[in-house]
Design a protein around this nucleic acid. Sequence first.
DNA 1: GTGCTAAGTTAGTAGGGCCTAACTTCGGGG
DNA 2: CCCCGAAGTTAGGCCCTACTAACTTAGCAC
Lengths: 150, 150
Amino acid sequence: MELSAPQEDYLETIGHLCRENGAARVSEIAARHGVSTATVVGALRSLKQRNLLCQPPYGQITLTREGQAAAESVMARHAALHAFLVGVLGVDGPTAERDACRIEHDVSPATLRRLIALERFLARGPWADLDWRGEFERFLATEEQQGATG
Amino acid sequence: MELSAPQEDYLETIGHLCRENGAARVSEIAARHGVSTATVVGALRSLKQRNLLCQPPYGQITLTREGQAAAESVMARHAALHAFLVGVLGVDGPTAERDACRIEHDVSPATLRRLIALERFLARGPWADLDWRGEFERFLATEEQQGATG
DNA sequence: GTGCTAAGTTAGTAGGGCCTAACTTCGGGG
DNA sequence: CCCCGAAGTTAGGCCCTACTAACTTAGCAC
């Protein structure tokens, strides 16, 4: 079975917390997701059954090797999407963050690969100096004017 | 309450069926989603409670004005994403279809607006002739070679 | 070492999505 | 006209997500 979107989200958060503090806590995960601790406990149960993390009763949460890999996969997708949204589409930070959090669960490997490549190609390659960004923003502004008028 | 992803999917399919045939049938919706008719009946119940569609017992399904608007919103998001995936990222048809089907439920209005604009800007504007597509594909091929080697 | 508080856990509720199995209804062919 | 098959519906079950409320445990303060 594949992981559900919430399961991937929790795993991702645990990955971040492990990086920051060496381990994660139920209350911290719950706080970051705006969810009750009971909900997190339930989610952890199935992640444990899948051998993605370890947690002694009432103790700290750490990722197994397998869980670490899964968490990093989600984090990588998230980072790639975020970079694309900001660096290519020019979406503002908070919106990019929210969208990346949701889309990361759905995007196929093929599309992700192209998305990463396009970001490198357009936003960091030789084209980055070509001011296509500026021209695009002007194009957007014009469209919005038309939308407001028509 | 907002619609869930499956609810939006069913609504979208009903929208297409209404366009094609003037009305939708439970069996046809179920077939297109690879799901049992019982599942569709359950989903229709909540969509009816939300006043998005009408269906006399054992009868044909039609959208209310409100349901029509909701269905068109989903279809528009889908179409925009598909056009972007194919026209800008160069993703193949079936993959673009699958990704659009999933991402359409998650993308924010702000991001969608920019995505549509970038597609128009890059794939249909003056830049369309500039062979950035060709250069991007070559860039992609190079990257893949490096990935396979490293 | 005794409590108190914060953290974690469990139980029970609610709703959604999916299934199968059993049923009702509809509509056309004999 | 009757009956059969196809379409729709209902009932019941399973799993997931989330909640609140009640509980246990852990760890620090005194």
